[in-house]
Every structure is written in structure tokens, then in C-alpha cells.
Write a protein that binds this DNA or RNA. Structure first.
Lengths: 130, 130
DNA sequence: CTCTCTGCAAAACATTTGCAGTCGG
DNA sequence: CCGACTGCAAATGTTTTGCAGAGAG
């Protein structure tokens, strides 16, 4: 699995800029809309491809909203962590699950599972949206 | 929110039968394919609608696979619980997250969130698929 | 120059919906 | 009978892909 080269293009920079100025999780569609609104011309496919490679390179966090849509956000920390996400506006707080990590691995191993990953997201209504 | 009536039809019985004989999570598509294979004629839309109402009635557990597809399984227990799911074959073990539940609520409340829900799933390769 | 990246339009999927006919209770 | 349920086909919405041209290094 060789890291392929990654070029710095106008479009890539634009995507990163939007992610940089937005605290919360955005879907590819929303991100694309914002770029268009501020006058950037960029293809939707490019947004998807860019977010895809950024996720691969672990430069963004990816999670799925309750209806299965993928949403992205710049990584805040390198450590593994989870999120508290507002169902309504997408506002996000980064949280840590103290024992969850080790617990998940333990239980999985116990049942003979390997190559273990886990998802843990908390959804709710933030004070602003309630 | 009044519970609407729910009729017992051939199609609904067929869906329940498949779910009953399968331990693991199935997507609507897979479920539909199985029904077709065993000679049942049933519309895909009906499968979706049936699973939807069953989820509403809390007769099935629903979770999303890593690629965002919805998967369903008959509830094993009434208690809130989580799953260890094989990424490859869908084989599932029901697990309990000891402190996770209360922890999630606590953290959310702490940040002013209300109407809190959470998702926690563990994915891996089961011994058979490794 | 070379090879990755981009745009666009088409394709691929999962899922939902409108509607007329069917059938459970 | 009545209204919930079904099948089908069309509509939606997200995400992927093929391909020819553009541009980063």
C-alpha cells in the first residue's frame, strides 16, 4: 500500500479552507453548495473525491448521520475520539470515551474477531436548537 | 402518536420468517433476494416498508454498515444493547456496553444537549472470515 | 513532459413515493 | 365493506465512474 502522490490544486485548497472555517460536520453536498455560494467553481465529483482521499489520509474525520449520509470535518486531534453531534444544525463537540476503546477491542477479541474497528457517536439537540 | 393498525399479510409473514431463521443482520436488498430465491414473490418496496414499520414498532434492530447501508435483525432482547458485526459475512454477536449508556447521556447533558441517542457498533472479521 | 486531478454527464445504488388494485379482519 | 397493504414504475438523493482535457511539479 504505497502512498500515492497528492497534488495541491485550487480545488483542494478551497475544500480545505471551508473545512478550516467550519467547526462542524459537513456533508459533501453541503460543502459543495458553500463553495458555489462563495463563487468557487468546483465539480461535485471533485468534492467527493477530495473528501475521499482526505479521509484515507486521515486528514478528516468521517461519520454518518442518522440517515446514513457521510459527513466530514477536519481532525482536531490525532488521538482516537468520538463526537457529540447536533441532529439539527450539525454542531459538534469532540468527546472522549475513556474505557470504550479498550473495551471494544477486548470484547471483539474475546469472540474471535480480528481487524476490529468501532463507531460511537452521540446525537442530540444542542441548546441552540432545542 | 396513535399506533396504527397492523395487518398480517403473506408478505409480512415471509419477511418475519427470513429474519427468524437468520441470526445476522440483513439489508433490505439481501432480504428481498433471499425471498425471491426461495420462490416468494414480493416487491422490494414492500420489504422496505415492512422493515420500516417493524423498526418503528421496535420489533427489529437497525444499524448501518460501514458504507451506510441499513441492516436489520430481529430483536433478541428488549434491553438496549450493541453489536459486534463481521464486516464480511454479517455474523453478529449481541454485546453490552456496561457504562456506555450512562456515560453518553452524561456527557451530552453536560454540553447542554437534549433528546440524546447514541450509536455504538463494533466491526471486525469473525474467525470464519479471517 | 508526465501523471494526477478535474469537470461533466451518465451510471450505479439504496430508498421513497404515487397510484390503482388487492385482501385482511 | 373499509382501509391498510401491495406491486410496479417512476422519482429522489447520494455517491461513483468513464473519459478527455487541464495543470501541478
Amino acid at each position: 500500500m504505497v502512498e500515492t502522490e497528492r497534488r495541491t490544486t485550487r480545488q483542494r485548497r478551497a475544500v480545505e479552507a471551508i473545512l478550516g472555517e467550519c467547526e462542524d460536520f459537513l456533508s459533501a453536498q453541503e460543502l459543495h453548495m458553500r463553495l458555489r455560494q462563495q463563487g468557487d467553481t468546483i465539480g461535485l465529483a471533485t468534492v467527493y473525491r477530495t473528501l475521499g482521499t482526505m479521509a484515507q489520509d486521515e486528514r478528516v474525520d468521517m461519520l454518518r448521520s442518522e440517515d446514513g449520509e457521510a459527513r466530514y470535518r477536519l481532525c482536531e486531534t490525532d488521538d482516537h475520539h468520538h463526537h457529540l453531534v447536533c441532529r439539527e444544525c450539525g454542531h459538534t463537540v469532540e468527546i472522549e470515551g475513556p474505557a470504550v476503546e479498550s473495551w471494544a477491542d477486548e470484547v471483539a477479541t474475546e469472540h474471535g474477531f480480528t481487524d476490529v474497528t468501532h463507531t460511537l457517536e452521540v446525537f442530540g439537540l444542542c441548546s441552540g436548537c432545542a
